[in-house]
Design a protein around this nucleic acid. Structure first.
Lengths: 292, 292
DNA sequence: CGAGAAATACTCAATATGAGAATGACGCGG
DNA sequence: CCGCGTCATTCTCATATTGAGTATTTCTCG
């Protein structure tokens, strides 16, 4: 038990007192910010001004300020800079950590570990070219990420197939993701992971409401699910289900003031309930064989 | 969050070409390695040899080797060093990323971002004091983490775990001790997050089998669930459910050679199936109120 | 005014779940 | 060798939950 100071890790830690004693790793945050516009899922992206990947779209992000902010704070700051939202508006945005990407060669300049965050935002104004990048905007995700493919069919980034692992996944470029506007770095992979997380998360949490305004109709909520999942849902069953899950939505007593332009009765309005988990969950259709 | 000087992020990136130009952030990996021993859940821990938190238990971990390894590789390496397992044995261990913890003051010496990993291991031999720390061992989790509390009840992970002081006053403890006290740094928080992830993950993946050997009985599998969830399950219903979920387990045709010492028929033996997801999932009992 | 669209409610069959009990195989202590 | 208690496995049955389809009612539009 004694073992006087022979260890690598301990020496590394002591070396930590002199930060310049060994090769550094940069730490950044990148944000996969999703929103719905015109019935399509969009992701916030910035256009890179310089190399590498000059002119390509990338996820908004930047360096964590050493000693001055947490990862969550850095992500919120980057998101605010890029969307131009104030603190009050940001309050309505759900932000959660997605995962970290740290392959030694994911950035050609140096070893960069990026902590990715996932944001669900209600309809937002056009993005601002926040500070750095050449431009910023909301891109339809299907323009850069192949739609619909359930992620578990493909190799998972951070999990090896059960007990036959190849460690070190999670950094490689995903083959077969070819499409017109590929994102810079491994951001296409991060986006794909974020999309799968979003699809899974609205199954068992009420976060789909984070894409909507303060009040909404059941049909609007259903359209969120249909858009994120890329599948049509049975309107009647969805309605029954949403109302039967305790705490998912609560009635405002009001009905839509402006009825739909295509006829039909005024829909009732709801607001998000106080549940943090949906029980029972709303499961995606199909998902039969989890095998593959 | 109005950025006073416009191009901060861009200048940071350019500065990235000269890594020594700004304050560094250290990047480490920490591993929450879980295993079952004697019907109880244990976590791999190392005893810290020096300050801060000298003498306290901590999660095994260490620095990511800049430019030389990915995060997954670093986690696998740390796990191997601490368990003394070879690559073949590690192959049977499930390892996945848990999350990153990066508050500026979680390590008193400097800003350290730690990428946490979660490992599910079958019964393993005693841990080796791998290279560094004073000692290593499997600690019963209930000795260091209050059982069962669902994660969403507590404040969100990443930021400040409670820093209930007692620096230094390390009372050395032996591996296997029941009263292990609190873990160093924010490792108690990381462990709690790992436990909650483990509890959730065995609901909808077959990963409970990763705690068992090559073959196992349904009862052994049920005991994994009961131990991880801390709840008793109805044996008959569990049996029916496991066999009805496609790809969860497959029969070996064999039965247990050495029957239980307390009587009863020889149980049939199964091995893990090829499913990556359980459908339908095995849900934890209770979980009624989605935490209002 | 009549047709079509949409929100909401209802019906019915198929499935899944929770609780309890039945069936036998087996070890062990007389 | 007997009888008992243990335990794996199977069944039964009542109660949710789900998927699909249909009905009812309220609107808009032409």
């Amino acid at each position: 038990m004694a073992e006087p100071d022979g260890g690598q890790a301990e020496r590394d830690f002591l070396a930590g007192y002199d930060p310049r004693a060994f090769d550094p790793i940069a730490v950044t945050v990148d944000v996969v910010a999703l929103t719905l516009r015109a019935g399509r899922l969009h992701v916030l992206a910035v256009e890179r001004g310089g190399p590498p990947f000059a002119g390509r779209w990338a996820l908004p992000g930047g360096f964590v300020r050493a000693g001055r902010e947490s990862l969550d704070e850095a992500a919120a700051r980057e998101l605010a800079e890029e969307t131009g939202l104030d603190a009050a508006a940001l309050d309505r945005v759900h932000l959660e950590q997605l995962g970290s990407y740290g392959g030694p060669r994911r950035d050609p300049r140096m070893h960069v570990v990026s902590v990715a965050y996932l944001a669900f935002a209600p309809g937002l104004p056009d993005a601002q070219a926040g500070g750095d990048a050449a431009g910023a905007g909301w891109l339809p995700v299907e323009a850069i990420s192949p739609p619909g493919q359930p992620d578990h069919v493909r190799p998972r980034p951070f999990e090896q197939g059960r007990r036959t692992g190849t460690y070190g996944g999670g950094t490689g470029r995903r083959p077969g993701t070819d499409s017109a506007g590929r994102l810079a770095f491994d951001h296409g992979l991060i986006l794909a992971d974020g999309l799968e997380r979003a699809r899974a998360k609205i199954e068992y949490t009420p976060l789909a409401t984070a894409f909507l305004g303060e009040t909404f109709t059941i049909t609007e909520l259903r359209e969120v699910y249909e858009t994120v999942w890329g599948a049509e849902l049975h309107a009647g069953n969805f309605h029954r289900k949403v109302l039967s899950v305790p705490g998912f939505v609560e009635s405002t007593g009001e009905t839509e003031s402006r009825p739909g332009s295509r006829g039909g009765p005024r829909a009732r309005l709801y607001r998000a309930g106080d549940a943090r988990l949906l029980h029972p969950a709303l499961l995606r259709p199909d998902r039969e064989a989890g095998v593959r």
